[in-house]
């Protein structure tokens, strides 16, 4: 049974192909990782130097003057995200509850799930146009409110799907325990199932939050941007990603510096959210319940 003592040409060829394929796969992985490393190195290198107290406390200075910060953009982003969350998170969680608790296996639920996934792929700029013709045109002016609505609409499908996934991770035995006590269904869904899944649901919301925090395109013609302080929902408002965009395509070095700083702040926020999500989902959302 010494068949393999003399590897013939064909098996040599096969093992060479095997090694080549392995090498290519490793190379591909390295090339995928490379841009991330490059982007992070640049962000930290360029961004950290422009982050100082003024960046977080001052509004932009006029062209030509050094200093100034993005305080108004940070506040503006917070206002926009607040409006977006108020709209997107409750509706999204509600949709997720329906899919996981009531609609399992029904055609309606499958259609909602599918549509949510497809909607996730619709370009954000399209949402911006829709909200523009829905709110900005009738009101005749840009506003923080319209920007928040555009972002909120974008959160709904994401929050719906993550909420559904997290609720499905809650074991059925926990639902049965609540129903067995004669707890009304709505109460059991809210106080037991949703509460049990809440770490996962919250981090899912944070992920959706982080995603829209970086959105620029839908804000261009809804929130519009603002060089000055404003926290009014009825006026144009600054936003961090919008400001980064404006500064990046400007010809001024001082503004470029601020753009890098803003990008670093945005990325830190997003990395935190993604890490948290990964931590929570890998650990399992439930301690002790099997």
């Amino acid at each position: 049974m010494k068949m393999a003592t003399k590897p013939n040409l064909h098996s040599k060829y096969r093992s060479a192909v095997d090694q080549l394929a392995t090498g290519l796969a490793v190379a591909a992985t390295l090339l995928v990782v490379a841009p991330l490393v490059a982007i992070f190195v640049y962000l930290i290198f360029k961004g950290a130097s422009s982050l100082n107290l003024a960046f977080f406390t001052h509004v932009p200075k006029p062209v030509g003057e050094t200093g100034g910060g993005m305080a108004n953009a940070i506040v503006g982003s917070a206002v926009l995200l607040g409006v977006a969350s108020v709209l997107g998170i409750p509706i999204g969680i509600g949709g997720g509850i329906y899919l996981a608790e009531y609609g399992r296996g029904t055609k309606f639920a499958n259609a909602v799930r599918f549509t949510a996934d497809v909607l996730n792929g619709v370009p954000s700029i399209v949402m911006g146009i829709a909200v523009y013709s829905l709110i900005v045109i009738p009101q005749h002016h840009f506003s923080a409110f319209s920007g928040g609505v555009a972002l909120g609409i974008m959160m709904i499908p994401t929050v719906t799907r993550t909420t559904e996934e997290m609720l499905l991770m809650v074991p059925n035995s926990v639902r049965e325990a609540a129903l067995g006590l004669g707890v009304p269904n709505w109460r059991s869904v809210l106080s037991i199932t949703l509460k049990t899944a809440s770490p996962g649901v919250i981090t899912g919301c944070m992920l959706a939050f982080a995603r829209v925090a970086g959105e620029t395109a839908p804000l261009i013609f809804t929130a519009f941007g603002n060089q000055f302080w404003s926290a009014s929902l009825n006026e144009p408002i600054a936003a961090l990603p919008l400001q980064i965009y404006v500064y990046a395509i400007s010809p001024y070095d001082e503004w470029h510096r601020l753009a890098w700083g803003g990008a670093l702040v945005l990325i830190i926020l997003i990395v935190l959210a993604v890490s948290l999500v990964r931590y929570v989902t890998s650990r399992g959302i439930l301690k002790g319940a099997s």
Binding site: E176, A177, G288
Partner: peptide, 9 residues
């Protein structure tokens, strides 16, 4: 129930 099912939270 067959398996203990405390409310985990």
């Amino acid at each position: 129930f067959q398996r203990p099912n405390p409310f985990p939270t």
